[in-house]
Amino acid sequence: MIAQRVKTPMERWVTVGHYTLLVALAFVFIFPIVFMLMSSLKPSEQLLRDTSSLNAFLPIGDISLNNYYAAFERAPIWQFIFNSIFVTTSTVVLGLVINSMAAFSFAFLRWKGKNAVLSVIIASFIIPFEAIAIPLLLIVNTLPWIGPEGLKISWLNSLHVQIIPFIVSSFQIFLFYQFFKDLPFELIEAARIDGASSWQIYYRVIVPVSGPVFATAAILRFLDMWNQYLWPLMVTQSEVYRPVMVGLQYFFQLNVVWGEVMAYLSIITIPVLILYLSLQRAFITSIATTGIKG
C-alpha cells in the first residue's frame, strides 16, 4: 500500500469537478425512475399537471397509495406476479443446467460434428424471436403434455408453454463456452488423470469455479423472461396463466388512468430493482467478469 499523500489544491478541485460530474450523471440516469415512483403516488390530474414543473420529481400534493389499491382492483396482479416468478425461475434454473452442460461438452469433450453444431447454435443467436413466433405457436399446439387431467394435445394455456421453449438460449451457451474455454486446462487434465468421468469433471471441477458466469447468465435470462410479452400474449388465452407484461395491457383502456399505470409500472419494476440492489455487487462483478472473456 502506498501511503496517502496530502492533496494539492489543484487535485482537490479536480476531485470536486469529478464528483460534480458524477452527481449530474446520476441524476440523468435516475430521474425517469424517480418520476415513475413519485407519479404512482399522485392522482392522474396532478401527475399530468406536475410534468410542467420540478414537482414531477417530488412527493408533494395529494400523496396516497390509492393508485396501488385501484390497480389491484383492476387486475389480478398477484396472479400475474406469481406466474412471472414461476416462469422466470423455472426457465433460469433449467436453462443454467442444460446450457452449461452443453457448453461444457463443446468446450472440453471430443465428439464428431461438434464444431458444426456449435456454429449453428451460435448463428441461431441472430434469429429474432418475432420471426419464429407463429411457427413456434403451430409447433407447441401439436405437442402432447401429461398433466393432472391426463394426456392432452397442445401446450397452449399453460405455464410450461412459457418455460420449455426458452430453456435453451444460444447466447447463454455461447457465454458459458467462452468462459469455459478460458479456464486453465490443467483443471480438466488433472481430474482426468484422477480417473474422473466427464460428468464428475462437470459438476465437481467446472461448476464450482464458474460462479460469475452462472450469475451473469442467470441475471440476463431473468431480465429477458421477466419482460416476455409477445409470446405469452399469443399462448395464454386464460387469465390464470398471464405474466406481468401482459397484465400491463389491462391498464390501457380507452380512458387511461395514468396514476394507475404508474403504480403498475412501479409494481412490476420494484421487485427487479430490489433484487438488483440487494445483489448489485455480485450482479455487476459477474457481468464484468464475463466481459473480459469476450
Binding site: 405457436l137 397442445s154 397452449l156 400474449l233 399469443m234 388465452q237 386464460s238 401482459v246 383502456q253
Partner: peptide, 23 residues
Amino acid sequence: LEEFPQISYNESVTAAAVAGNLP
C-alpha cells in the same frame, strides 16, 4: 367467461385462431 385486454384482443384471437383454439 374469459377476459382479454382490449388493446391486444385482436392479436390474442388471431393467435388462438391460428392454433385452432377459439371459444
